[in-house]
Structure formats: structure tokens, C-alpha cells
Computed example of a mutant assay.
Amino acid sequence: MEVNSLNILSAGAGTVVYPPGGHFGPRTQVNYQLVLLHTGKMGVSINQKHHYEVPQGNLCLLQPGNLEEFHFAKDEETWHSWIDIHIKNMPPEMENRLKFLPFYMPISDAMNQITELMLQIQHTGQTGINNTKCTLGAAVLELFIEETLNQSNVDRLYHPVVLRVKSMIHKRFHEEMTIAELAEDVSMSPDHLVRLFRKHEGVTPSHYLWERRINRGIDLLQNTGLTVSEIAYQAGFKTSQHFARLIKKHTNRTPTEIRMGYREGRNE
């Protein structure tokens, strides 16, 4: 049974940061969901019988019908992203195949890039992108199956320095920071850090930092009533004009259009 032959009705992605001591659930899992743990810790209880401690830098596959409860790091924020895949009438042979895969495995470059791509597509707010997201959902599921069967391919796994720099960017994106400061924190020259980051992420640390700021700004536009100036400041921009200019370049929409489009979509 090929993954791309599955009847995927919808797929989507998200990202969230839980404060120290965060907790979620219990909840019954509805769809197949891949959770990528970037920083912090995550304990997952399944059906009150099985408990897993997912290490930082790993992802896990959550499956429909299970009762789940999550506990996060007590002394630091926990950041994770996810891809949710709604499959109609999952064939029994594929369902059984997924049940016997490892619960978690290291995040690969490819898995992270697909997740980031889906998040970016959603942020554009364009209509008619459901088929594209379904295609990416199928790719993620197929990639997870392939990677769990080939975990010895260490070249595809994150370099620990890259993971550490991403963690620092995620926690301090609203502050001023330079490549030199990031490189010093990981005891590496700036040029070496840029080469390493580009190899594993496909972009420079500076590009990744601005992408993080833009995505945070979009999240605040869609989920808060803060002014554009307040959002720009919280997302790490010096001025609201700079924020609006990069948002327009990234999404082809103004901050006001993003905010209004999201509200209209929720009211449909």
C-alpha cells in the first residue's frame, strides 16, 4: 500500500510554546499527527497505560483513537510544531504498519523543511491550497515510515550545534542578536556556523531568525488584539514600518489584511 494512494481529506501544521510546567489533555486523538519537539521536554501518556519521554530534537507519531495527556518541562519553555493529517478510511494494512513503528525518532532536515513549508503556505492565506497541504501531509507520513526504517543514516539528522542555535533563536528572537554572538555561544567561528547552518537548514542563521520573527508576527496578528506597533516590538522589529514591509514581502498582504482575512475565515 503506497502512502500517496491514501484518501487524505485535509492536512495542516502548527507551532506552539508551552510555559514551564505546561500541561495539555487528556484528549482523544482524532487524526494522525506528527509532533516535532524542538526545545524543552515532553512526556506523553497513551491510554493511561504507556508513558513516553520524548527527547529534545525528536518527533513522535500520534495515532487516532488514543487517549493522550502531555506534560512539558518544569524549568523551561517547551517549543514544538506539528502536522495533522486527516485520512478517510485508513486501510487496515497501513494502520497496522504504523502501529508497529517506533513511537519517536530524531527530527531530520527533510521533516523540518516540510513542516516549515506547510506553515509558510498556511500563512499566505491563499485559497485553494488544501490539495497542496494534503500532498505535503502524504509526503510527511511516507518520510516518517522511511526514516524509521533507516535511522542509521546519520547524515540526515540534525547537527547538535544547529539544534542549539535554533533553540537560542527561538527563545531570543525578539532581542537583538548577531551571527558573531550566536557563534560565540557555540564556540565556533561565524563563517563555520553559517556554512553548517546552511548545510542543514538550507538558509543562514540570519534568514532563519527573520523567518521566526515574521512567523511570530503573523501569529500575533491572527490571535491577539495588539496594535501593529506592539506586535512589531514583541516580534523583534525596531519599527512597525519595517515589520509591515517584511510581512508584505513575505505574504503579499499587509498586516491589516492578514488580520481581517483570518477573522473572516473563522466566521465562515
Results as ranks from 00 to 15, higher is better:
residue 67 L to I: 03
residue 69 E to L: 04
residue 69 E to D: 14
residue 69 E to R: 05
residue 74 K to L: 13
residue 75 D to H: 14
residue 75 D to Y: 13
residue 78 T to E: 08
residue 78 T to N: 06
residue 78 T to W: 10
residue 80 H to D: 00
residue 80 H to W: 05
residue 84 D to H: 06
residue 85 I to L: 12
residue 85 I to M: 11
residue 87 I to K: 05
residue 87 I to H: 00
residue 88 K to D: 14
residue 89 N to I: 01
residue 93 E to Q: 08
residue 97 R to Q: 14
residue 98 L to N: 04
residue 101 L to V: 04
residue 103 F to L: 06
residue 104 Y to G: 00
residue 106 P to H: 07
residue 108 S to K: 00
residue 109 D to H: 12
residue 109 D to C: 12
residue 109 D to T: 13
residue 110 A to Y: 09
residue 111 M to W: 03
residue 111 M to G: 05
residue 112 N to M: 02
residue 112 N to G: 11
residue 114 I to Y: 09
residue 118 M to T: 07
residue 121 I to P: 07
residue 121 I to K: 10
residue 124 T to A: 08
residue 124 T to V: 09
residue 125 G to R: 03
residue 125 G to N: 05
residue 126 Q to P: 00
residue 127 T to N: 09
residue 128 G to A: 04
residue 128 G to H: 12
residue 129 I to K: 07
residue 133 K to D: 03
residue 136 L to W: 06
residue 136 L to S: 10
residue 138 A to G: 15
residue 138 A to E: 03
residue 141 L to Y: 02
residue 141 L to E: 00
residue 142 E to D: 08
residue 143 L to A: 08
residue 143 L to G: 03
residue 145 I to L: 13
residue 147 E to A: 01
residue 148 T to R: 05
residue 150 N to K: 04
residue 150 N to M: 05
residue 150 N to V: 04
residue 151 Q to E: 06
residue 154 V to D: 13
residue 155 D to Q: 12
residue 155 D to T: 10
residue 156 R to A: 14
residue 156 R to D: 15
residue 158 Y to P: 00
residue 158 Y to I: 02
residue 162 V to F: 02
residue 163 L to P: 00
residue 163 L to W: 04
residue 163 L to C: 05
residue 164 R to K: 13
residue 164 R to H: 11
residue 166 K to D: 02
residue 166 K to Y: 04
residue 167 S to W: 01
residue 167 S to H: 10
residue 169 I to V: 15
residue 169 I to L: 07
residue 172 R to D: 05
residue 172 R to T: 07
residue 173 F to S: 02
residue 175 E to T: 03
residue 179 I to A: 10
residue 180 A to I: 14
residue 181 E to G: 13
residue 182 L to D: 00
residue 182 L to R: 01
residue 185 D to P: 05
residue 186 V to N: 14
residue 186 V to W: 11
residue 187 S to M: 14
residue 187 S to Q: 15
residue 189 S to D: 10
residue 189 S to P: 09
residue 189 S to E: 10
residue 190 P to W: 02
residue 190 P to C: 07
residue 196 L to C: 03
